[in-house]
């Protein structure tokens, strides 16, 4: 990085440190913080969308749609996360490649599954073997986003479903009494009221999602945990900057990062909740404010 870093073995003290902390490897470490934030930024809305579709489907009047919605939510909830994280990307990847294989090389008659091997024709590889490394990494990253979204979408779906159920029946019945169609009722009454019940659950889910980001490494994405472990591990003189095991310091850094992230998220959710509460005029408990005792 700096000009004086040419001969690391000659460096001392702060100079050494400044060179050490600006190696290409450290740059990759710093970049990986962005990767994690990007993952969160992409996963959260996608998961919310999946969850929303799942929740709406599971409440649908159309039976097959309802089954799909319920199966999705129940299945993902029932299976341990880690199993899903190991299964989904492989299944997705092989699924995509299988479809491409069928479409792009119909002339290949050999089976795709040969013993242990999963072999598609060269043109069906995703990304192509010849594609640059960044495309492989991006593809892997997007698979990870999709896997996270599927898993967390199911949790979100459950939360949203519960929130839909939590909207008081009287509110819905009133809308019906005033002649609303089920569509109008959904968009005008159910959806706006549902969020207040969903928000605590979603905020919790966000916290879990944040904490789950180290699973990225399991999916082959080099995230902050990977780099902290790699950089912190003892370095012999095979490396330019040998040092003993410094993982403690690197993980301390991650600790601070995650705590900061949680702190910022908590504040954001608190503000969101305050806005919703204001919008719904729920200053105290709803029934108490209405002067109604049931």
């Amino acid at each position: 990085m700096f000009e004086f870093c040419v001969e690391p073995s000659q460096l001392q003290g702060l100079t050494w440190l400044s060179c050490y902390l600006t190696t290409g490897k450290h740059m990759a470490f710093y970049t990986s913080f962005g990767t994690v934030l990007l993952l969160l930024a992409l996963t959260a809305p996608t998961a919310l969308l999946f969850g929303f579709c799942g929740a709406v489907a599971s409440r649908s009047a159309i039976a097959p749609l309802r089954w799909i919605g319920r199966t999705y939510v129940a299945m993902v909830r029932g299976v341990p996360d880690i199993v899903f994280f190991l299964f989904v990307p492989i299944a997705l990847d092989q699924g995509f490649e299988y479809i491409r294989h069928m479409a792009l090389c119909p002339e290949v008659t050999e089976p795709i599954r040969r013993g242990n091997d999963f072999v598609v024709c060269t043109a069906a590889k995703l990304p192509l073997n010849a594609d640059p490394q960044w495309m492989h990494e991006t593809y892997g990253f997007l698979l990870a986003v999709l896997s996270f979204a599927i898993v967390f979408g199911a949790f979100a779906g459950n939360t949203l479903r519960g929130a839909f159920e939590a909207v008081p029946k009287a509110q819905i019945e009133t809308a019906q009494a005033y002649g609303m169609t089920s569509r109008q009722l959904f968009w005008r009454i159910l959806l706006p009221q549902m969020w207040i019940y969903a928000l605590p659950g979603l905020s919790n889910l966000w916290a879990i999602l944040t904490k789950a980001t180290p699973l990225l490494f399991l999916l082959g994405v080099e995230d902050i945990v990977y780099w902290a472990r790699e950089l912190g591990s003892m370095k012999t003189s095979a490396f330019s900057y040998p040092h003993p095991n410094w993982q403690l310091w690197y993980f301390l850094g991650l600790l601070v990062f995650y705590l900061l992230l949680t702190w910022v998220s908590d504040r954001a959710f608190a503000r969101l909740m305050a806005r919703f509460n204001l919008g719904q005029g729920r200053t105290g408990s709803d029934t108490a404010a209405a002067g109604v005792g049931r």
Partner: peptide
């Protein structure tokens, strides 16, 4: 038009919003 025992005003709308909701959305 129905008036309920527990009023059943839509909690997420202002009073004005409650009054204009059905005329605008439904009618």
């Amino acid at each position: 038009s129905m008036v309920f025992q527990q009023f059943n005003l839509w909690a997420h709308m202002t009073i004005l919003g409650n009054v204009i909701e059905a005329p605008v959305t439904v009618l």
